[in-house]
Amino acid sequence: MSLTTNPRTTVNPNRPLSQVRPKPSLRDKYGDRAFNIAATTVLLLSILAVVYPLYFIVIASISDPNAVYEGKVWLFPSGVTTEGYERIFADSRIWNGLGNTVIYTVLGTAVSVSTILCGAYALSRKDMPGRKILMLLFVITMFFDGGLITKYLVVRDLGMLDTVWAVVLPGAVGVWNLIIARSFFEHTIPNELREAAQMDGATDFKFFFKMVLPLSKPLIMLMIMVHVVAQWNSFFDALIFLNDDSKYPLQLVLRNILIQSDVSSTGTTGGDIESYAAAQRIAELTKYAMIVVSSLPLMIALPFMQKHFTKGAMIGAVK
């Protein structure tokens, strides 16, 4: 019996037919190479489009504003100066705002992540009475909102105005994050694992803290990252609910300093062109420096959190 093969197929008599693979043609090789080149080019351009604006802000914050306006700053700084950073850090409000932001971020993230994890796990349990009704009530809040005035009245009547809780509690539970966490628990934590733990005498609380949370590290780190970024960049709630300047977060402090710099630059009178130009120069330096100051801590911290995004923790868990 003869064996008929494709002209591009090499058959080794010592190998089974299931392992016989046709050799790629010259056309296939060039097609794969062209695809790889195109995909790499698109990826590099996408990275450049994201990274370069950040790099430009950094070099512009230490460059002469006149050089920035003239287009001389695009790859390397020109007329290096640290005047913008010196003026920012010389203001005591910056350090006070930084301390407040750290407190709001740590406390707000802890409250939000704890609440979302506990609520999402409870809603993921099919044996929980009324979970569909509760989930429906949560989803309704995504489409209908009471508005800013109602929110302010609730915070005021609860006695939280001008306190840290006015910044932390109103947005503690994000419904979208709750849905993500609930879906994660439903599809990742098998019911057989809970039944095995119950057979060993584990209560629901013990199963949640000893089994569910250790197996949910990717979800926990995702929730932490999302809420850290949101709390760090948040300023609107503080603007509405806080009256004491000493309790302002960093973003609100930087906003006030920026407004003050713009007012100073536009309020120059008497036709003094040199004074106006100097004020404009300081305002531009301050803008770029503020962006770097407000963004740099997160840019440093987030890469260290990236390593916790691991998968495969559930392999063998049921066994």
Rank of each mutant, 00 (worst) to 15 (best):
W232M: 01
A202W: 07
V228I: 14
N233S: 06
F235P: 02
A181P: 06
N233G: 09
D200C: 04
D204T: 02
Q231Y: 13
A197H: 05
A181S: 06
S183E: 12
M225E: 09
I189F: 10
Q198W: 11
F208T: 11
H187V: 11
K206N: 12
L213Q: 01
S183P: 00
L219N: 04
P218M: 00
A202G: 05
K217S: 02
A202K: 07
S216L: 13
Q231H: 13
A181G: 08
R194Q: 07
D200F: 06
V229Y: 06
V228L: 07
I220C: 05
P190N: 15
L193K: 14
M199P: 07
I189K: 11
L215A: 09
W232C: 00
F235S: 10
L193D: 11
G201A: 13
K217M: 15
V229E: 13
L193E: 09
L219A: 03
T203E: 14
V212R: 00
L193P: 04
V212E: 00
V226G: 10
Q231S: 10
Q231C: 08
R194M: 07
L222K: 09
A196M: 08
H227V: 13
S234E: 15
G201Y: 15
H187M: 15
M211G: 05
F205S: 11
F235V: 03
P218E: 02
V212M: 00
V226I: 15
L219D: 00
M225A: 08
P218K: 08
F207V: 05
K217I: 12
I220V: 13
H227F: 05
E192N: 10
M225P: 02
L219Q: 01
F209T: 10
F205D: 09
N233P: 04
L215K: 08
F208P: 03
A230D: 12
F209Y: 14
R194H: 12
L219G: 02
K206D: 13
F185M: 01
S216G: 10
R182A: 03
R182H: 03
I220Y: 01
F184D: 00
L215P: 07
V226D: 05
E186Q: 12
E186C: 04
D200A: 07
R194K: 14
F184E: 02
Q231D: 07
E192Q: 15
S234W: 05
A230T: 13
A202E: 09
S234L: 11
E195D: 12
A230W: 13
V212S: 00
R194G: 06
L193S: 05
E192T: 09
V228T: 10
M211I: 14
I189N: 05
F209G: 08
K210I: 05
K206W: 12
P190W: 15
V226R: 04
E186Y: 03
P214Y: 10
D204R: 12
A197G: 03
K210P: 00
F207L: 06
T188G: 04
A197Q: 04
A181Q: 09
M221V: 14
D204P: 07
F205K: 04
L193V: 14
D200Y: 01
